[in-house]
Design a binder for these strands. Sequence first.
DNA 1: TCTAAAACAGGTAATAACACCTAACGCGTA
DNA 2: TACGCGTTAGGTGTTATTACCTGTTTTAGA
Lengths: 213, 213
Amino acid sequence: MPIKVAITDDHLMLLDGIQNALSEDPDIEIAGTYQSAKELFNNIHKSTPDILLLDLQLPDKTGQEIAAELARNFPSVKIIILSGIESPLVIQDMMKEGCKGYLLKTTANKNQIINAIKTVYKGQLFLESGIQERLLRDVLETKRRGPADKKRLTAREKDVLQLIAMEYNNQQIADKLYISLRTVENHRHNLIQKLEVKNAIGLVKAAMELGLM
Amino acid sequence: MPIKVAITDDHLMLLDGIQNALSEDPDIEIAGTYQSAKELFNNIHKSTPDILLLDLQLPDKTGQEIAAELARNFPSVKIIILSGIESPLVIQDMMKEGCKGYLLKTTANKNQIINAIKTVYKGQLFLESGIQERLLRDVLETKRRGPADKKRLTAREKDVLQLIAMEYNNQQIADKLYISLRTVENHRHNLIQKLEVKNAIGLVKAAMELGLM
DNA sequence: TCTAAAACAGGTAATAACACCTAACGCGTA
DNA sequence: TACGCGTTAGGTGTTATTACCTGTTTTAGA
């Protein structure tokens, strides 16, 4: 019985390319290709895949939202992220969300993708060597400079960061979250420290890298 | 004699997908596939293509830089942009830079790409219908609200915008550009007006959309 | 060469952001 | 239970941003 693989990415030719690569392998069967989260959730039940190759930057939902929703409703689907995002924070977040593999669009080729699918299907995790190094380096650096994942953002900080990125000012964020202006200022300050940027501009760039938008 | 087509995009599987699609057409020959501007310029002379399919978001150079450099050194190469960026401003800028076609990664399929290549090869421009509409709507709206392309950014404004996005504050930008703090403030104010955003955060998001980073 | 636009710069003010501090409270865990 | 941590909030002060003006010089196009 072949491994059923679904692919979700908003770029048509990339879907084509991957589909083409996978069709060369007799152990793999394409269970569906989708261009948005909506399409994915509308159709996944028709032929539930064993593996889902998932892009993180879709037009309608963030990668984390999709991963969380899949874990709730289709826990048997193993997710392999195929993304252009190289940030260790994002990779860690997605793996913590339960994803089984992470590939980079700039380096992932046919063999690697097929390899990742088969590895994950067997129940193992798959991280390409470059990513493993990156994560390792990141963890080591973090350890060196303080009490471990100092840079991991809390849920509330993510809330605030999202609203900052939406061009809300502190007062508006306070109103939106029903908290005081001072609290928002504190969160903002902490975010600037954690993400090691100079100002709100840096925060927004980080938010985009972290796929929070 | 087949049409020689080169492709530049940093995503491997997308290169594969396009290459695969084009290889089905006997009138088209792949003259090279590149993952960065550096790779492109290092190798393009070996087999100068008639058409270059170009992504706008490469790791080492902006699309505008690449288009300008190609126009200088390889004026015979006709550029078709294949990008995820849908902003009318960007599309207009690239067309003004001399590009002959613009395709969207979310909608471009095999037939459309081949169609675009053949159309451009014959000397015509190729803009997909969705883009044509978008441009038309944009132009009409601009006309309606004032003295034409009010939203087009000047070179200096782009300089300032880039530095804002790099987390420089106004004083640092002034120093960098050898102009007064007040001038920077004015440019910033004008940018906020032109791009119709609320603050510097909006500017950065716009800068990213415009591919200025 | 005339003209419009772009780039430059200053005045004045209000508002927002940022830094650095303390500290209370609840919650889960060692 | 003691501890760390997240979330909340306030105090105080500095600096940066933004709005809305006016005006000159430079540049480039018709």
